[in-house]
Amino acid sequence: MPIIELNNVHKIYRTKEIETIALENVNLLVNRGEFLSVMGPSGCGKSTLLNIIGLLDAPSQGMVQLNGRDTSGLEDKTAANFRNKTVGFIFQSFHLIPSLNVLDNVQIPLLYSSARGINRTSRAKEVLEKVGLSHRMKHFPTQLSGGQCQRVAIARAIIAQPEIILADEPTGNLDSKTGMEIMELLFGLNREGTTVIMVTHDEHIAKQTQRIVRFFDGRQVE
């Protein structure tokens, strides 16, 4: 059974004046443990696809299934539970909370799960160790380099041990060397069994993944 299944997904943004089709008739199956790259020019709907899979946005039409469950019309609490336990997001611009230090940023997903305080801290230290940032726990995002911020974002994405990692251009704001280090972390997670879907512009990086899906003007072209 695929872990992610998209059937006839459309996403249309409407304003009073115009209607923009971001995704058109997208059908996609992603198997458990797969590492998938999503490629295409800017504005072709890659990030929208990721947002829809991660329940950050809802499709205008079509069905999205996660772990075999239809996610359309989910109650806020159930959708939040999916975002908390099943999906982990990594953003191009990191989206760390600037007023929180590294340790507190990483713990955010556990605040909304049943994990207790002491377990939260030890688990956060554990994942920071894994991404090689245990020596920066008390630092704030502004005191870190771009690569370090992305490591914090990865630690935050994996702390609740989600089955799916959605990475939206995770190396887009990083130099090539740091980008490769981040990719190594993602490949490591994938080897451990996590399904990874990554949006990227980098053909070289995409070729290292198991499958590439290409988009153009909201349509899946490959």
Partner: peptide, 16 residues
Amino acid sequence: TSEIGIRKAFGATQKS
């Protein structure tokens, strides 16, 4: 608002 979005992306409900 951005922080609220980030928190929701990682599992916060509207109520929380």
